[in-house]
Design a protein around this nucleic acid. Structure first.
Lengths: 158, 158
DNA sequence: GGAGTTCTTTTGAATCACTCAAAACAACTG
DNA sequence: CAGTTGTTTTGAGTGATTCAAAAGAACTCC
């Protein structure tokens, strides 16, 4: 006989493989709720969706949700260090689950597509400006702007 | 004998030393209007004001203006290459007149103060990411985040 | 394994920076 | 100096994000 799963209290709407996501949430001091599991799972698959995109994915997975809930979940994940908010110029905020490492972004000026890139020159050169004006620098953020392959093709074709 | 200045048609509300600003505007294909001269003059003194700050300065200098006019002027200056728009994460858009050189910014996470910094390592390392995903990269934008001296003092004191 | 407390989500509305559009106006041309 | 073109003004509108109160669900402790 198949017993209902009882350990971990799987939130409804999520698959059994989400146990470690629940654990990760709880380890970060967050309650493991269905929306949070759905968002974290989505982000961990890579990509850099915006709030609207996350909302669409959550809605498709859970059947219902609200955009405000998604904003709340994203804020909680960011504060807990499980996600990171990216705010490229001229774009809505994007979110990613790859945190802790000092990686940067390559963004298409045409379509907004975002790719991760590792730091070009290790860490030191990127980390310290020549003149720091007395600032105590804690982060160096590098954004490469360019045209992605698809948009390059569209330009020559179109 | 002192003739009234007749060349350049100084716009009202501006000082006589603005002749070269008018010339710069016209050279860029823009009509030399009082709001534009005021904005360009402000930006050329350095600093990274936001639209509201520019508006306040223009208003103080010309007596009257509108925020929408300032947005229009800033957009025109940016398009003409006389100004540059900066959009730091979590902040409103800022503007600066230092264009053409590849410099970066050092921003205080606490108060939002912005300082210019030259590229840390010449140009090459900053300009090319290790993996470009097929992108044609045209810009590398570096933002250093830290705490400015004033805010450091406020923290230890406070 | 159930009640209580605390944290989340929901629902609804509001804010902020910024943009759009039409009409009044001013700068450059000849 | 008059005409044309480009700018500023005025007024309203948009979209991303945030705020606040009430309903609801997760974890704790018995």
């Amino acid at each position: 006989m198949q017993t209902d799963q009882q350990a971990g209290q799987e939130a409804p709407g999520n698959s059994p493989g989400d146990a470690h996501l629940s654990a990760r949430l709880r380890a970060a001091g967050l309650k493991a709720t269905a929306p949070r599991i759905a968002v974290l799972d989505l982000l961990q698959r890579g990509g850099h969706p915006d709030a609207e995109g996350v909302y669409a994915a959550v809605r498709e997975r859970l059947g219902s949700s609200s955009l405000q809930a998604v904003y709340g979940v994203l804020a909680a994940l960011c504060e807990a260090g499980l996600a990171k908010k990216i705010e490229p110029a001229g774009s809505t905020a994007r979110f990613e689950a790859r945190t802790g490492d000092n990686h940067h972004h390559l963004i298409c000026s045409d379509c907004g597509r975002i790719e991760d890139v590792d730091c070009a020159v290790g860490e030191a050169p990127c980390m310290s400006p020549v003149t720091d004006h007395g600032f105590s620098v804690h982060t160096a953020e590098v954004t490469y702007w360019g045209i992605c392959p698809d948009c390059q093709a569209a330009r020559t074709t179109g």
